[in-house]
Design a protein around this nucleic acid. Sequence first.
DNA 1: ACATTGACCTGAGAGC
DNA 2: TGCTCTCAGGTCAATG
Length: 265
Amino acid sequence: MPELPDVERFKRYFDATGLRQTIDATSVMDDRILEDTSPQGLGRILKGARFESTRRHGKFLLAATSHRDWLVFHFGMSGDLHYGSHHDELPPYARLAIVFTNGNRLVYTSKRMLGKIGHTDDPEGFADRQNLGPDAMDSKLKAGDFVRLMRDRRGGLKSALMNQSVLAGIGNIYSDEICFQAGLHPAAELNTLDGDTLTDVYRVMRRVLQTASRHNGHTDQFPSRYLIPHRDKSDACPQCGQAIARDTIAGRTSYFCPACQPAPR
DNA sequence: ACATTGACCTGAGAGC
DNA sequence: TGCTCTCAGGTCAATG
């Protein structure tokens, strides 16, 4: 599930629930989710600390503790956060619980076990170490920067949008939406797109991610002229009424309108 | 450099 | 009902 707007939702949720409370204990239900530590190591890092702030880079959520380390969440395809009483039953697929002294706890769940939890004492260098490009919603990322990132690359538009080392935060769903609203085929070769076209892609990208974040990534609330509510439903294109096409592009199942997004020659 | 494939994991849903 | 098959919004390594 989680792409940038979803992780933004997790950040808001974390900020509203997990900040400024003392951590009493941690409990790891499945240590395969731990990136670079053990259940004991995680306990040492977190016990007695408080989360003070969070930041997001791409699909990663980082939480600063009152000690030295930051906790790093990646949600894979099926990660989520749940806050509630320590005495409630654990939610399904709980992998890590962080118990606070107020009797509540924050639970990280992951159905498919593809997410990771790690830690770092250098959040500034995190993106470089993870080989991540700039965050797609970074206010410092201007149209000209985006054009420079995309231009002169070989390969297709969708592939570049999804490439986390080029630009961080966009996955399969939102790359399709951006291509759709830009009127470009997902397999369009980047070296055939001029600066004006890429500037338009940039504007579409920001608008789509902004709108999606405003709706907390809840795709059922998106405007019906978006592709997302219609993909995978054998619906018609919300712009022109033609049948939506499905094809594997850049290794992923992709949806697009063959009329609004003509195939590259 | 780039695309493609398969692997990592598990569960939901479709089809029989 | 129960079985099998396919697919899933992420990422990585190996290969061409």
